[in-house]
């Protein structure tokens, strides 16, 4: 077909060539997650916790806290501990809830709206769709963790000041090193949440009800917490998804205690791989009747 004919008859012969690498769909996915008001509200709740902690500690005397590393009592000595205390408080429920909401919505939400069939007919290859969805979940997990840490660190520095940081092992390190340790903590927590995100993505391929997928993913996380708290089941504990989550406190020792960190990362990687494979196996052969 000549160029002239191509111009008069706009058939697909002059379709632009396939772009092997395109980040447009991924960016569109991020826009969908971070442009949605529901998710702003969720992130506002996540960001409110460090503010509440900082203000509460400022106006009252600190008391020893419950589970997890005890950061509350250290807050008055260094503002960075607001970030760590907030992460410790939000890791059991709020952060898993936020990740479950995003991951549960990933495929089931599109199926529920019917937009899934539009995307697949574009065409978006099913494997690519899952990859983009999961990448966006990981970005959200990192962003949610970083948001809490950033708000906590800022509020803490404003109310309690910075300076050298006394680590949990009693060693004092410069403020810069302390900041690096906080970033490591965020990375570790994000990796744990990304594993939960893989579980959520798998559940999301099973249903057309995003709320159902979210609740099921959250129940998975909470059941893990409950089982982890039953000493008689100690043989099971290393295999639970949340067993090593609170080990992030080990990153605040000098030297860093890796006895739980490495197994924690290994567990997260195993959960991620297994559930991504399951999601792919399920989604690549599923009939899209929504």
């Amino acid at each position: 077909m000549s160029a002239v004919e191509a111009a008069t008859h706009p058939t697909a012969a002059n379709l632009p060539a396939l772009r092997r690498i395109s980040t447009r769909f991924f960016r569109s996915e991020l826009l969908l997650i971070f442009g949605r008001r529901r998710n702003w509200a969720g992130m506002a709740v996540l960001a409110a916790v460090p503010l509440i902690i900082a203000i509460a500690v400022k106006v009252t005397a600190p008391r020893p806290g419950g589970g997890g590393p005890d950061f509350l009592s250290s807050i008055t000595s260094n503002g960075l501990f607001v970030a760590l205390a907030a992460l410790a408080v939000e890791l059991p429920l709020f952060l898993p809830l936020a990740v479950s909401a995003i991951a549960g919505d990933a495929v089931a939400g599109e199926a529920n709206l019917g937009t899934l069939r539009n995307l697949l007919a574009v065409p978006v290859h099913r494997t690519r769709l899952l990859a983009v969805k999961y990448a966006a979940i990981v970005v959200f997990a990192v962003a949610a963790t970083a948001l809490i840490a950033a708000v906590g660190a800022l509020a803490g520095l404003v109310l309690f000041g910075g300076g050298p940081l006394t680590l949990l092992s009693g060693v004092q390190v410069p403020f810069g090193t302390g900041l690096v340790r906080l970033v490591l903590v965020c990375g570790y927590i994000a990796a744990c949440l990304a594993a939960l995100g893989a579980v959520g993505l798998f559940v999301s391929t099973l249903t057309e009800q995003p709320i159902g997928a979210t609740i099921a993913t959250l129940i998975f996380a909470i059941t893990s917490h409950i089982l982890d708290a039953i000493p008689q089941l100690d043989w099971l504990h290393p295999y639970l998804i949340s067993h090593y989550w609170m080990a992030f406190g080990d990153l605040l020792r000098s030297p860093i205690a890796t006895t739980s960190i490495w197994p924690g990362l290994g567990s997260a990687a195993a959960y991620t791989l297994i559930f991504l494979a399951a999601a792919w196996a399920r989604f690549s052969s599923r009939d899209i009747t929504s």
């Binding site: 632009p16 447009r24 769909f25």
Partner: peptide, 13 residues
Amino acid sequence: LRRLDAADRHADP
């Protein structure tokens, strides 16, 4: 529509 277009690897941004 922007989202649909973004998903299409044949589409010229």
